[in-house]
Amino acid sequence: MFHSTTGLIHLSAAFIAMISGAFVLLNKKGGIFHKRVGYTYVISMYTLNITAFFIYYLFGKFGPFHALSVMSLICLSGGIIPAIFKKHVKNWLDWHYYFMNWSVVGLYAAFWAETLTRTLPVRQFWPLVFAAATVTAMIGSYLIRRNAKRLITERSLSNTDQNK
């Protein structure tokens, strides 16, 4: 399953990120629980992505999955930095919401691609990776858009209440 200590750390960080990411998505936003579990997600994702740069088992050099790790780091940073500096970032919640959600979608797309290529007897590596990523991204895109409408409505209502 893993070929080194780095691989074990990578795998462990992936499991922690998947669990904490799911908890953040499925529970109430804001508040101390969201922040604590969210920081667990962020730390595990940074660990996951950084260790990815030390894994060259598949291609023997920098490959497409390393490029996806760069994209993941961009999403992760694009989500956490506005939340940390929210007093200085206009529409910080929008940035946080979209980037963090796409970070989670990318994580699950990688999970499904990894799972399918390791468990199915089909010898079509790239079509399985593409199919897993595409289906996950389509479902993620739908859920992100659907829940964004609710988030925007809740924020508008709370802003209206504060202005009274």
Rank of each mutant, 00 (worst) to 15 (best):
G7K: 00
G7R: 01
F15N: 01
I16S: 00
I16K: 03
M18G: 13
G21D: 01
A22I: 00
F23T: 05
V24N: 03
N27Y: 04
K28M: 09
K29D: 01
G31P: 08
I32E: 14
I32G: 15
H34Y: 04
R36M: 15
R36F: 15
V37L: 04
G38L: 03
Y39Q: 10
S44D: 00
L48E: 00
N49Y: 03
T51R: 00
A52W: 00
F54R: 05
Y56F: 13
Y56C: 03
Y57H: 15
Y57S: 15
L58I: 11
G60C: 03
G60R: 00
K61G: 15
G63V: 00
P64S: 11
P64G: 14
F65V: 02
F65E: 08
L68D: 01
V70F: 09
I74C: 05
C75K: 02
I80C: 04
I80W: 08
I81N: 02
A83N: 05
A83W: 05
K87S: 15
V89I: 13
L93W: 07
L93C: 08
D94N: 14
W95L: 04
Y97H: 07
Y98K: 08
N101G: 10
N101M: 06
A109I: 03
A110D: 02
E114W: 06
T119P: 02
L120H: 06
L120M: 11
V122P: 03
V122Q: 10
V122I: 12
R123E: 10
Q124W: 13
V129W: 06
A131L: 13
A132T: 06
A132D: 10
T134Q: 11
T134W: 12
T136R: 03
I139G: 07
S141H: 10
N147P: 04
N147D: 15
A148P: 06
A148C: 07
L157H: 09
S158L: 14
T160A: 14
K164V: 11
